[in-house]
Design a protein around this nucleic acid. Sequence first.
DNA 1: CTTGATTTTGCAATCGATTGCGTTAGCGTA
DNA 2: TACGCTAACGCAATCGATTGCAAAATCAAG
Lengths: 324, 324
Amino acid sequence: SMSTVSRALADNPLIPEDRRREIQRIAAEAGYVINQSARSLRMRKTQTIGVVFPLGHDVGQLISDPFFIEMFGRLADEITTRGYQVLLCRVTDTSDGWLNRIIQSHRQDGLVIVGQSDQHEALNHAAESYHPLLVWGGHLSGQVYCSVGTDNIGGARRAVDHLLGLGRKRIAFLGMLELPEIGLRYEGYVRALRAAGIEHDPALVIPAHFSFETAYEAARELIESGTKFDAIFATSDIIALAAIQALAAAGIDVPGQVSVVGFDDIAIAAQSTPPLTSVQQDLAKGAKTIVDLLFKRMAGEDAPSATLLPKLVVRKSCGGASAG
Amino acid sequence: SMSTVSRALADNPLIPEDRRREIQRIAAEAGYVINQSARSLRMRKTQTIGVVFPLGHDVGQLISDPFFIEMFGRLADEITTRGYQVLLCRVTDTSDGWLNRIIQSHRQDGLVIVGQSDQHEALNHAAESYHPLLVWGGHLSGQVYCSVGTDNIGGARRAVDHLLGLGRKRIAFLGMLELPEIGLRYEGYVRALRAAGIEHDPALVIPAHFSFETAYEAARELIESGTKFDAIFATSDIIALAAIQALAAAGIDVPGQVSVVGFDDIAIAAQSTPPLTSVQQDLAKGAKTIVDLLFKRMAGEDAPSATLLPKLVVRKSCGGASAG
DNA sequence: CTTGATTTTGCAATCGATTGCGTTAGCGTA
DNA sequence: TACGCTAACGCAATCGATTGCAAAATCAAG
């Protein structure tokens, strides 16, 4: 009897306990497993969380960025611990309605978007009707969706303040202002300079993508442009490491002549030469917060955005007495 | 008319071209998206590949191992490029029939198992009836399933030969022999020693798990045991890095007193101090091969196992003239 | 206008579970 | 034996697509 079996396997108390056990035993012996496609269709839930990496800006390199990779791993751990599967969605086609296409495919019960990329509007629009959606990224004004992220302004502020404290005055900024998180870090950079009474030179703001190669190019151009600078605030560790290599190639000493600070504090940061000073994002806590809030939303409750406090980890790449 | 729409969206030539386009336009405007649960059920395929990490030996640490992480990223790239989704399966419950449970859930059209763990038998059994299955790992005798992996014996042989060439004679082996791949590396280690006419001392074979902490402990115990050794062949870079730190903590110079060679050549290997000599596995090629073969098998063709040739990347951690 | 061939269209079954609701079985009591 | 009540059970609808097959529409030719 089909319905009885279904109920028995679901541990439905309508079926007497001993009968349930027997059916479960027989099913196990026969190697029977519930077909999840059918189950998903009927139940309208998939026991799956989609993790999305919008790559609107830089296509073709999911794997190359250690930050994304680590974030993914942490998210995967949090999700699987709760008995859900993880579906990785790499979005290459960000044409109109890409997010809706993912949502309406009903492949997942909830979504985590890692990084806003340039899709703030799309996210806002989707969030109006789709609730089990969480975004890792900066908190922007007029934001409808629920996000978790580091205090980018504060983190940048702390990094630049540290450089200023070392006596650095011409601090270059490397990053893509178009991305919301980077825009916020820029905000922190500007505020720190202003607070120190230093005029902000647009020639020191260099667009740099997240990949090592393009960042290296950007740093090289800055060096060759002849613009004078005595420090670099890089908006990611990869950019910082690329800049250090570009400086080394040009015979410029780090931290002797130029101090460098990165962002993220990925694992390699501590291992590089010189070890990299960086603004640490607590990804373990971030991932846990994201998944906690997502499950709250999946349960129908509302959940507010959250901000994590960054920590400046000082190492040798920016010189000064406090190295370590 | 439901059937017409379904056919139109599938670009079925039964529907005249202009009608197809119109229907597609209307569907796009209405934001209609095919429900993948229903589609999967009817079509008996999910456009999804499952990537499985059996953690029978070391539970609770998917994210911590850079090797797994990189492999996953490469696999994900290859899979998404082919228009498939990636489902991450972390297996914690390796009780009888775990693989069958995954297969019969019909959540995916094909499976990639990363690392045999201690599940050789289970894999062999599953492969008899389930064909779209590929395994990253060593090639074992009597193996039914299709696997792709580095030539572990050859790689180990090359690493140990290099140490012997540097004049090292008492070479410790760090790794878990129970795992098939490590067993093969041990085989290479033994062969290299035998070829050099050196007697193999069981006291130099130390069980070491893949996590940094446990590997550090293992190395510390080796050092404190008083057993004399002048080199370490570690079966993963993480183990090698842990060993280097343990040696440093004990005041032993690398590569002055002890040479260290790792396995995998993960990204950090080049960045550590001293930079780590390691047996490089070409994961990009490995992942591509795996997915190529998997899709062949999904198409019903047969596909043979493949072996990749490892390359010894010499850096400073083992001393000698050839450092780079 | 009819016939036959061909192109379009749509009915209805199907995939494999879950579940509301009605039916049957079982048991105790009068 | 009859009745009432509860505990088990099972029929049949449902989820939302796809597709074989038959019906309908269209068209060409006689």
